[in-house]
Design a binder for these strands. Structure first.
Length: 283
DNA sequence: AAAGCACCCTGTACGC
DNA sequence: TGCGTACAGGGTGCTT
């Protein structure tokens, strides 16, 4: 399995690497080698609008990388499944996967590499508007227990589906959704509006703690071809995963074997003892 | 509102 | 060894 999947912690680590390196640099030349990686613009338009610009900031919103430019526009990058942003092209002979690259001043180079071609580069005037449907940042102060409780209380969807829904909360993907539910001891098929106040508090804490811990560990790299920080470094959180990808392995908390089911077309891993099944539907 | 599916892609793992 | 096929994943858009 080549699971890759940059989620919030991985993107945050990429952003930190990019920020330290890119701010103040000038984009001298842009080459797009897979035109569908660029949203809305032709490769020529994209290059023309970027060349000569200075990078004034690098940020993140959910799983989006936001590269702010001197003219006020923003280059938004979504890594989707297999995207990487590599500085001075840590690329072994992996040039074949580079879909766009940027020559910077001082002879430096930034490469957008993407095996599966799902990633996107998007130049926008207003990232706030472009991301208007994105849910709250789970690590921001506004994401409180009360706020989560309120948004859960009106929803009948299953927890796993909601955690994957970027308009509900931004930044979780399949790995951290499973890990948050495991930490919160909540079954992935629980209906959102059935959680008790204590359970909401557990979920809230679990989401924030697992994301912060993963950020601190440099993210999760599951395989050689997997996620890399912008300098090519791997993250170490894979060894701390309790449920994700651990089907039939013992739960670190109780020793029961982790089970795997499908929810929302996604593989879902949970402990059948720590995360008790919801009561049967109907009624 | 919620769920299901096809689509976009390709490397990998599998069965034969 | 080699071929064919299923599968993994995030997000979008459509249908039920």
């Amino acid at each position: 399995m080549t699971s890759i999947m940059p989620e919030l912690p991985e993107v945050e680590n990429v952003v930190r690497g990019l920020r330290a390196y890119l701010v103040g640099r000038r984009i001298e030349r842009v080459v797009v080698t897979w035109e569908r990686s660029v949203v809305d613009l032709t490769p020529d338009q994209f290059a023309q609008q970027l060349e000569g610009q200075t990078i004034v900031g690098v940020g993140r919103r959910g799983k989006w990388i936001l590269i702010r430019l001197g003219d006020g526009r923003t280059l938004m990058v979504h890594l989707r499944m297999s995207g990487r942003m590599l500085l001075d092209c840590y690329v072994e002979p992996r040039e074949r996967y580079v879909r766009a690259w940027f020559r910077l001043d001082g002879g430096h180079r930034l490469c957008f590499s993407d095996v599966r071609k799902f990633g996107r580069l998007w130049l926008v005037d207003d990232p706030q508007r472009a991301l208007a449907d994105l849910g709250p940042e789970p690590l921001a102060g506004a994401f409180t227990v009360d706020a989560l409780n309120e948004s859960l209380s009106t929803r009948r969807a299953r927890l796993k589906s909601l955690l994957l829904d970027q308009s509900f909360v931004a930044g979780l993907g399949n790995i951290y959704a499973d890990e948050a539910l495991w930490r919160a001891r909540l079954h992935p098929l629980r209906r959102a509006d059935t959680l008790s106040p204590v359970e909401v508090e557990r979920l809230h804490g679990a989401i924030r703690q697992v994301l912060q811990a993963a950020i601190d560990s440099g993210g999760t790299t599951l395989s050689e071809g997997g996620y890399r920080q912008s300098d090519g470094q791997t993250g170490s959180f894979a060894r701390d995963l309790a449920a994700y990808g651990r089907t039939d392995e013992p739960c670190p908390r109780c020793g029961s074997l982790i089970e795997r089911i499908r929810v929302s077309q996604r593989s879902t891993h949970f402990c059948p003892r720590c995360q008790p099944a919801p009561p049967a539907e109907i009624g």
